[in-house]
Amino acid sequence: MSEKKGFIAEVKSETGVNVNRCYQCGKCSAGCALNESMDYPPSVVMRMLQTNSAENVSKVLRSQAIWLCVSCQNCLTRCPMQVDIPQLMDYLRVQALAKKTVNKKSKKIVAFHRAFLDSIKYTGRLYEVGLVAGYKARTFDLLQDLNVAPRMLIKGKLPLLPEMVKGKKQLKKFFR
């Protein structure tokens, strides 16, 4: 297997992560909180990438696993080879977005992240009411949290008006 080309090389140059350092001990998968819900556990994702085959790379970029990773950093903490899997996952997610291969079952996760960034884009700070409205508009998940919101409101946990950051223009160019 060549490190000089293909996806392995791309990952290495973009993130500094060398997927070939993984020797398949499986500690990442053993400690992964989301393992049971993933289609491929982290160590399997690593092995698939190590093959450097276009078919396996495509499977990874279409997987649910990359979106279910919550970046809890347990895998990196326990990895005897210090392979930065959370950073790799960030890269894989951005690639899946760019190649439009986002896993169908993960669309709600992506919708939430997008609604979150939209909210910051317009105000500079997170505006929860706007976030949930944006999320619902993207997912048609209209019933989500209808029972929680009133209690949050009563307890003063849900500001109704957004706060505007004066310098938000400085950040504008980073949103795409």
């Binding site: 970046s71 960030d90 992240h113 960034l117 910051i120 700070r125 997170l126 310098g167 938000k168 980073f174």
Partner: peptide, 16 residues
């Protein structure tokens, strides 16, 4: 101050 970007930013947009 502005939002730190939380999980959403590093999941979708590294520069941001």
């Amino acid at each position: 101050w502005n939002c730190c970007g939380a999980t959403a930013a590093h999941n979708l947009n590294h520069e941001l």
